[in-house]
């Protein structure tokens, strides 16, 4: 699917650089011992700004799904209807990422299934982004 290419900033460059190296890194708050995504300048729980970037396993579980029939994003409209699923990370299930679940037919998303991260190249700039595939 023709996703928009995210434009990194100095702040979130570590995340996008890691994507281009096909590694999933997200922020971790040492004070709360808690992961978070998307990147933020501070921990929303304790306010700490000394967040670190940590590589995670790249495994997760499909938590829920929708089928998009009326997307606002012009580039994706030709692909409608399409799946979007929420992925709960293995390390911390409250950290949710999104996925189109490439290859999974519409309305056939296996809720609860295990997934692993893959990286998809976005066409406009070549920036890679995390995607997910069902492994069990």
């Amino acid at each position: 699917m023709r996703k928009q290419s995210p434009v990194p900033t100095e702040f979130d460059q570590p995340f996008y650089d890691a994507c281009n190296e096909e590694r999933l890194v997200i922020q971790h708050c040492p004070a709360c011992n808690r992961f978070q995504f998307p990147p933020r300048t501070m921990c929303p729980r304790c306010g700490a700004s000394n967040l670190t970037w940590q590589q995670v396993s790249g495994r997760g579980r499909i938590q829920s799904r929708v089928v998009v029939y009326d997307s606002p994003v012009s580039a994706l409209i030709p692909d409608q209807p399409f799946n979007v699923a929420t992925i709960a990370l293995e390390e911390e299930p409250d950290v949710i990422m999104l996925s189109h679940l490439p290859g999974v037919p519409v309305d056939a998303v296996p809720i609860g299934a295990t997934v692993e991260v893959i990286f998809e190249t976005t066409p406009a700039t070549g920036q890679k982004v995390p995607e997910w595939r069902v492994v069990g």
Partner: peptide
Amino acid sequence: KYGGIWGMP
């Protein structure tokens, strides 16, 4: 960019 690129309304 962290979620919008998946095209959810």
